[in-house]
């Protein structure tokens, strides 16, 4: 349709509006935030405690609950992001998407703005998990810079997943289909990542999959920043996360046209 002539102030303006919208939403209704904290809490408290006490997994000397905390955190953020596509399905059914398309906001900014908004919601969710982890005794690296970088990684990674989710919404245009697909995506990614066990303990074929699994990089970054303070792989991790999110943004922006026709 229109040629994409990038206008930075417009881009920032619309993204800001979308972030603010999400902030209003979360501030009016926090129940979802709490409900979605239950499952990750169980992972940390039950799974972490039981498997940890078996001492079957080589974690390099850190307690098992602390080892899985970054993975649980990323998984909960991803869950929020992947179900964000549902919102788009809903907005398609209602007239909001049509309405947004008739505003001066360029389409790609609507997509990216909403993805960042989802990232923000996921970030807020992960703060809740962070708090739970601290309460159950996970010892975090005390360093505000590490902490801030972690937050930015969670935001960017979740935004990428939300963009992926919006692309899915262009294929699965009803809620029922979408809910099933969401679960089907998160768990295989979670189990084929380094969330619950080090990559070295995995069979070779699974390791290969883990290396192309974007979740692996986000978790590795967070584990280094928050738990082990070992930052050797950090630049690779950040590069991988940014690459993943950029590709997802691109696909979502291109696919977005499909959802409204």
């Amino acid at each position: 349709m229109d040629a994409i002539d990038f206008d930075l102030s417009e881009f920032l303006r619309v993204c800001y509006a979308m972030l603010e919208l999400e902030y209003f939403r979360v501030s009016h209704d926090r129940t979802e935030l709490y409900i979605r904290a239950v499952q990750p809490a169980l992972w940390l408290v039950l799974f972490g405690f039981i498997i940890g006490s078996l001492r079957a997994i080589p974690t390099g000397g850190i307690p098992y609950t602390a080892f899985i905390a970054p993975g649980v955190l990323i998984q909960s953020a991803t869950t929020v992001a992947i179900f964000y596509g549902l919102m788009i399905v809903w907005e398609r059914e209602s007239g909001i998407l049509k309405r947004l398309l008739s505003t001066p906001a360029p389409r790609y900014v609507i997509v990216i703005g909403r993805a960042l908004a989802a990232g923000m919601r996921a970030l807020i969710q992960s703060l809740v998990i962070f708090l739970i982890a601290a309460i159950v005794g996970v010892k975090f690296v005390i360093n505000p810079i590490n902490f801030l970088i972690s937050l930015v990684i969670v935001l960017i990674f979740s935004a990428g997943f939300a963009a992926f989710s919006m692309s899915l919404a262009t294929v699965f245009k009803t809620r029922e289909k979408f809910v099933g697909i969401g679960q089907l995506i998160i768990f295989p990614l979670f189990f084929s990542s380094n969330a619950l066990y080090p990559l070295t303990t995995m069979p070779a074929f699974l390791q290969m999959f883990a290396y192309i699994n974007p979740m692996t990089y986000a978790i590795d970054a967070l584990r280094g920043l928050l738990i082990t303070n070992n930052l050797t792989g950090l630049s690779t991790d950040i590069f991988a996360v940014i690459l993943f999110t950029s590709i997802m943004f691109y696909i979502a922006a291109v696919r977005f046209k499909k959802i409204v026709e």
Partner: peptide
């Protein structure tokens, strides 16, 4: 433009809806 179905967010306030739209329009 007002579509036939619904074009405001129902889980935020009236003022907030107007604020978001005014930002989108710059």
């Amino acid at each position: 433009y007002v579509p036939q179905e619904m074009s405001v967010w129902t889980d935020i306030s009236a003022y907030e809806n107007l604020l978001i739209y005014s930002q989108i329009y710059g």
